[in-house]
Design a protein around this nucleic acid. Structure first.
Lengths: 140, 140
DNA sequence: TCTAATACCATGTTATTCCATGATGGATTG
DNA sequence: CAATCCATCATGGAATAACATGGTATTAGA
């Protein structure tokens, strides 16, 4: 199981490309170099995790019941699945952030990767420092 | 096992043709590029899944004692099987939505594909935003 | 034969892959 | 201990492929 830790800031080019921090990549299974992301439901950030995490969420959804029991779109698991995208990491270690996701997180030219164990988050430097409080200035 | 996620909006032409989002296609088994669909039993949408999912539902129906339990058509599994159609994906990655299905979902010229894990749904943009609530505007 | 469904082809746009460069740090060797 | 070599990493740009989409041709069914 992957374990994401520490904090890294990388540049985002005009196409939305950004390098996934190497330590994050190395915790991913070597046969599936991809990450799944979605706009956070609670903050101005992007939530990230590995693919197996998505399958766990999917299993929580009994789709058979979903088709016959009303109230689907508001189901939390459905919300996560419908909003998440799986981004493949290219041979240079980069992903392309979807425009809408960047917009949600207020990301333009730099992205802060924050390891949180089984998951991580991607912030804009500005939003991250604001959310963290004033005791952060050495993000460079 | 395929896992459908994220949300995509594609155009529907006058013939009812629409591209299946490439990420959805790639989760399907390469030797069976088709999807099975039915009008949702609970909402103004089309339910979709791959063929193997249909067989699972069929097995549920087999476990159901048809000889002793009356009113089989009301069995959800029976309802799903009887209403489902399997649509083949053409060489350009498109399907043709049956007219009745489009009518059920209120689809005219655009279709929203919503990934929900083992299954997905197809909505009209209008109905989908209405069903999701007010907090969705970036469907593009 | 006429109509409708299906298969085929063409095109612009977008995304993905490939290649080159600079920076960094660790290890090896003089 | 210092200089050099090598591997990894982040980053930019350009070439290439994939995708969505509209149109036309061909086939099949009524």
């Amino acid at each position: 199981m992957p374990l994401f830790s520490s904090t890294y800031t990388n540049k985002v080019d005009k196409k939305g490309r950004v390098s996934v921090p190497a330590p994050f990549r190395s915790t991913l299974p070597s046969d599936d170099q991809s990450i799944s992301v979605l706009p956070s439901l609670v903050s101005k950030a992007i939530e990230g995790f590995d693919y197996s995490y998505l399958t766990q969420i999917s299993e929580r959804l009994d789709n058979y019941d979903m088709m016959t029991v009303p109230g689907q779109p508001s189901n939390p698991a459905a919300k996560i699945l419908s909003r998440s995208m799986t981004l493949s990491i290219d041979s240079d270690g980069r992903i392309v952030l979807p425009q809408e996701f960047m917009k949600h997180a207020g990301i333009s030219d730099r992205a802060v990767f924050v390891g949180l164990g089984k998951t991580f988050q991607i912030w804009s430097p500005e939003e991250y420092t604001a959310a963290m409080g004033q005791d952060e200035e050495e993000l460079m």
